[in-house]
Design a protein around this nucleic acid. Structure first.
Length: 326
RNA sequence: GCCUUGGUAGCUCAGAUGGUAGAGCAGUAGACUGAAAAUCUACGUGUCGGUGGUUCGAUUCCGCCCCAAGGCA
């Protein structure tokens, strides 16, 4: 106990999965049963004033459970993974300090990695003049290829990894090298860095067809609840169309519609389609994480049964309690 | 009832003087380290409506039938 090497790592839970699988409810159930606090792991619920389209939990849905990392920045802000990592880990520490169970909930795969491994990022941060210059270069004819070739010279490993057409990534790698002098491949950590916590990660899922049906239905509900007005008032308040927050699914399509480039029916269909594709990408991301314990809604009579199982699994594996018992 | 035009991939359609067919979209799989709800990559076999006939060979030509849309009665 006094030896650092034997120190018990604190138990931390994460509930992940594609959009519309009921993660929020599951997290509230877990927190209620195990005196936990929820920490959102969602790149868009971070923003204030984006509520309906991000399916941000309402006060009622939170069921009295404290939620962190929700509505913490203004929508005009460009928030990034590195900031998320810093802020979310701080939130986690505060939950731990209170003796409660941190329960991360959300569907942003990169954010999960950032806090649970944890990733070490390069020194060079967000948007910069260097990035802007590289972006302009990329737009020249043959620019993307030229940048990729340049990257291959200074950081062959990253160039190998990155497809020429993935300009955004090529630029980032170049940006890291140009501003720090270190190639990206050396500046960042491995995927598999050991975390300081004892993570228990559960992914909620369901058969593809059922998932898609739920997503479609949820989009209709969002529209019925006033998604269009939400977007309209965001624009009216002067929020620029190019900002990160308005790139969110459900927002960019409505902006298109409000600008008269498509009908409402088309916008709604596009939101459904983009949400389905997003869910598919989320699944792809999660599948490669071997730590994840999958929970298929189809195997349970109802969500409550799944919640009970979740609680039981987390409880039984709780290292601290097990040791306290002997 | 008659005439016309269609019936080819989940959808919209293309195509071959007869040698079993291909685009877009959808879909699927994958990648992912400071935009990640972002960005990027790969993947096209389907009784060519049914059934008879001609033919070495029919989805393609011919007959009949079914279905859809339009027109005439």
């Amino acid at each position: 106990m006094s030896e650092a090497g034997n120190k018990q790592k604190p138990r931390v839970v994460a509930i992940v999965g594609p959009t519309a699988t009921g993660k929020t409810d599951a997290a509230v159930a877990v927190c209620t049963a195990l005196s936990g606090e929820a920490i959102s792991m969602d790149s868009m619920q971070i923003y204030r004033r984006l509520s309906i389209g991000t399916a941000k939990p309402s006060a009622a849905e939170m069921g009295g459970i404290p939620h962190h990392m929700l509505s913490i920045v203004e929508p005009e802000t460009a928030y990034s993974v590195a900031e998320y990592q810093r802020d979310a880990l701080a939130a986690m520490e505060s939950v731990l300090a209170r003796g409660n169970l941190p329960a991360f909930v959300g569907g942003t795969g990169l954010y999960l990695q950032a806090v649970s491994h944890p990733l070490r990022f390069a020194e060079a941060g967000g948007a910069s003049p260097v990035r802007e210059r590289l972006q302009q270069e990329a737009e020249q004819p043959g620019g993307a290829e030229a940048l990729h070739i340049r990257l291959a010279k200074v950081d062959p490993e990253s160039a190998e990894r990155l497809h020429v057409n993935n300009t955004r990534r090529v630029i980032r790698a170049l940006e890291i090298f140009e501003t720090t002098g270190t190639p990206m491949s050396e500046a960042i950590s491995d995927w598999e860095a050991e975390p300081d916590q004892d993570w228990r990660i559960f992914a909620l899922t369901m058969p593809r067809e059922a998932l898609y049906a739920r997503i479609n239905a949820r989009v209709d509900i969002m529209v019925a609840r006033g998604l269009i007005d939400e977007v309209r008032s965001l624009l009216q308040s002067g929020l620029p169309r190019e900002c990160q927050a308005l790139q969110a699914i459900g927002y960019r399509e409505i902006v298109e519609m409000l600008d008269g480039r498509c009908t409402q029916a088309e916008a709604v269909e596009a939101i459904k389609m983009n949400s389905r594709r997003y869910a598919k990408r989320q699944l792809t991301w999660l599948r490669r994480d071997s730590r994840i314990e999958w929970m298929n809604l189809a195997d349970f009579d109802n969500p409550s049964a799944l919640h009970a199982m979740l609680v039981a699994r987390i409880w039984e594996g709780r290292g601290g309690d097990k040791n306290a018992g002997n």
